[in-house]
Design a protein around this nucleic acid. Structure first.
Lengths: 213, 213
DNA sequence: ATCTTGAACGAACATTTGTTCTATAAAAAC
DNA sequence: GTTTTTATAGAACAAATGTTCGTTCAAGAT
């Protein structure tokens, strides 16, 4: 971070004061008046610099879309992720549809740093029940962060519902000419081959969290 | 404060999530989409009720002028954890001494929710190099949150330096009458037995984080 | 049955507010 | 000196966004 000009420091201070004062971020015109600046474009100009230097984050086209990055109020990016259930062999996952998405409805939520979810939409969490997925390096009690998607890239780990076997499992998915290969994360384990119609993708794994002590 | 309708509770929850998520309050239309409501006037109507009941404060004519008056249940804080190096079989861990402890000095830091570290002191992170620890359900690239301790409880997973073998590894530690049992996390794997003098505890594992996609 | 009330709907409207463009001046670089 | 960069001004535009209004519908109340 480079040193800021007096005007830029003034702007940062004003934003923070406005923020704690009123409970919402200022507009560019608020800053114009609050800092005795004569034009919105001057503020815009300096806000761009502040963003480049990493002091704030601007959200384009969003009114009051100024986020303080060096803020004590809401440190960093925290995301509430709903823990919507558990995954275990033999049980389907109660995956929420995008419109019934409701953090409040889920009894439990997990608070994680935004960079863990990488600010993706439709992220939920599952508790892993049973040790049937150790070959994917996921153990009983682990929490998997999932993203609701219908298709996955080759090689991505996904939650898969095997229709015939009536089993849910976590595996890496590879599309092959006439079949689908489900590869455990542990290279010493043998893959499973099955028909495309038999697999139903319920989401992809974006992170695994295991809390121990 | 009167009891809120499900819809009103939903709106409150959404505002709170939006707020912690994005760093600024939602617009009425954000709430419309986020809560599956079909008209802005319905939100307006309910926001008025929420203001009358004292849950929020509205600022007329101000975009995103919604202020939450009720504090989030547990405004979880975030902790900066230094990533001080990597653990791999064959290499000792560069464990920091308590006085050379310096978050700022480490080139990399990891931001995690406070409840992951459970607000413990002396927490650091290691990147796992190589797949020599798959039997402990830890893979190449995983990040282990460690706490700097010299002794561990029976059954806790710890980073262990085996003097004779000149190897670092993650295992569950059990003290037995004349020896120490190092048990992989995978119950199908066999334990290692060694003498107490041969093991040097470099810290205990309090969490494992694996970021995939 | 009729009237009231809480709740929701959808559209139209007016204001707020971010963005952009041109012009100007001072400072720095050449 | 001239040119380039940095910073500021002001205005106009377009998008975002709060507000309002007529209407509908269901549930009680009279």
């Amino acid at each position: 971070m480079k040193a800021l000009s007096p005007k830029q420091q003034h702007i940062i201070d004003f934003i923070r004061r406005f923020w704690t004062d009123r409970g919402y971020p200022p507009t560019i015109r608020d800053i114009v008046h609050g800092c005795g600046i004569s034009s919105t474009s001057v503020v815009d100009y300096n806000l761009d610099i502040l963003e480049k230097e990493g002091y704030i984050r601007r959200h384009p086209e969003i009114s009051r879309g100024i986020e303080l990055l060096t803020r004590p109020p809401t440190l960093g990016h925290q995301v509430q992720v709903p823990v919507i259930g558990q995954i275990a062999a033999g049980e389907p996952i109660p995956v929420p549809t995008p419109d019934t998405w409701d953090v409040a409805a889920s009894s439990e939520t997990l608070q994680v740093s935004g960079d863990l979810t990488r600010d993706r939409e439709g992220v939920y969490a599952l508790k892993v029940k049973g040790s049937s997925m150790v070959d994917a390096l996921v153990n009983d009690g682990d929490i998997v962060l999932m993203q609701y998607v219908n298709v996955v890239e080759n090689g991505e780990m996904a939650a898969i519902w095997l229709r015939a076997e009536k089993e849910a499992t976590l595996k890496k998915v590879y599309r092959e000419p006439d079949r689908i290969r489900l590869q455990p994360a542990n290279s010493q384990m043998k893959p499973i081959y099955t028909e495309p119609d038999n697999v139903e993708i319920q989401g992809r794994v974006i992170a695994v969290i295991r809390q121990l002590a």
